Simulated scan of single mutants.
Amino acid sequence: MANIIGSPSRYIQGKGEIKKLSSYAGNYGKKICILTSESGRKRVEPAILEGKGDADLQLIFKNFNGECSMTEINRLIGECKEAGCDTIVGIGGGKIHDTAKAVAYYMGLPVVIVPTIASTDAPCSALSVIYSDEGVFEKYLFLPASPNLVLVDTDIVCKAPARLLVSGMGDALATYFEARACQRSNAGNCVGGKITLAAMALAKLCYETLLESGVGAYLAVQAKACTKAVEHVIEANTYLSGIGFESGGLAGAHAIHNGLTAIPETHAFYHGEKVAFGTLVQLVLENADMEEIETVLDFCMEVGLPTTLADLGIKEVNPDQIMEVAKLACSENDTLGNMPFEVTPEDVYAAIMGADALGRYYAAE
């Protein structure tokens, strides 16, 4: 199997870039479907229309109904076909991005992704995570290519609640550890190949950037300031993590996240918040060096990422419920099989309980 790395054709990050969307998207089509939430449209439409000017483009806004499910994807495919759209633009968060990518894939159209938050590494990936209409993980939809363009306006991202940036840090936190596990097991990555040196270097840089700039970025965003630390973390959450996870591979942390979606109490928490706890579970499962685990715990506590089950809304731990999480995480279509050793549901159950105990111990210090 060849070594393969995937990435968007172009990644653009800077202040005020949303005004140039029409110019960028106009390179791919002239009848552009812009998928966004109703509230998101109110925030971005004035700047987009200002930047469009007299350009010979038709912008068709479509509302996203909240879940990246096949029901929603098929609804939007029908509406975009009826409108004759030739380019799909997804503006918003991870589920909008994944929905836009899936719609573009099934329609055979180019796709432009515009994050308004830096809460996940979804923007750059050739992957859509599909959920049921009720929000339970169903499957990964692996796509043949990454988005044609990813456009990040840091002015917009900086105005989002700090919790969203922190959630992105939680998602990005897993990148290096999952890629490392895949490298050790010689597992395939998410783009159908083995891990390149470049992908592993980006994954490691992602982790190092979080440790160096994460706390400063968290504090700056709380003050509504777009500092260099914020810009570095936006790049880590969006690009470094996006390329790192996809071309490095997924392992334990995201499988644990997917299992946790079966517990209703966790639905109030963001993807990256659950992935952060999944990273701790993976490290316990690996019996990682305690100094490394402590570094991850300290980082999570400093920026407010979950380190216990209680932090994810699970106030009363039901052993049968946790075992169900463990069984789902070990599903054949998930990524725990990429760990460099055999993993059973009993192993995952023990690692979840062990990670929770560690989190409670360090929080009490």
Rank of each mutant, 00 (worst) to 15 (best):
P306R: 00
G337P: 03
I314P: 07
H271S: 04
E302V: 00
I322K: 11
E235I: 01
A288I: 01
A351V: 07
L219N: 14
E291P: 01
P319Q: 13
D320K: 15
V221N: 09
A223P: 10
I243S: 03
T307M: 00
M339F: 10
D311A: 11
E292P: 01
G248C: 06
C300N: 15
A326D: 08
I243C: 05
T266A: 05
V343G: 10
T261R: 03
G252H: 08
L240F: 13
V303T: 02
P264C: 01
F245Q: 00
S213F: 14
T279N: 09
H271Q: 07
V343K: 11
V284K: 03
Q321D: 13
T238D: 06
N237W: 05
N338S: 13
E231M: 01
A253V: 03
E208N: 11
L336D: 07
G259I: 04
K228R: 12
D311P: 09
L336N: 13
G259R: 02
A251W: 06
A229K: 10
G259M: 03
A326V: 03
N287H: 13
Y349Q: 13
T227K: 08
E316N: 14
I243L: 14
N338A: 14
L297K: 01
V233Q: 04
V317R: 14
A350C: 06
L309V: 04
V230D: 08
I322G: 12
T308I: 05
T209S: 14
V281D: 08
A276E: 06
T344D: 09
V296C: 00
Y239V: 05
E246V: 04
G259A: 03
E231G: 03
E302F: 07
C300K: 04
A225T: 14
I314G: 03
V215E: 14
L211S: 11
G248I: 01
S241A: 15
T261A: 06
L283S: 12
A225N: 14
I293P: 00
A329E: 02
I256L: 13
Y270Q: 13
S213A: 13
L219I: 13
A288Q: 05
A251S: 15
K274L: 04
A225P: 08
I256F: 04
E292C: 10
L285V: 09
L285E: 09
C300E: 10
H254K: 05
L328E: 11
Y349V: 09
F245M: 12
A268T: 14
V215H: 10
I293D: 04
G313H: 15
V325R: 09
V325I: 02
P306T: 02
E332W: 10
L211I: 09
A351Y: 02
G216T: 02
A329V: 06
G272K: 04
D347H: 14
T209F: 10
T307E: 04
V343N: 11
V296H: 00
T279W: 01
N333F: 12
G242C: 11
E302D: 15
T238M: 03
A255E: 04
I243A: 11
T344G: 09
V230F: 11
P340D: 12
A268Y: 14
K228I: 03
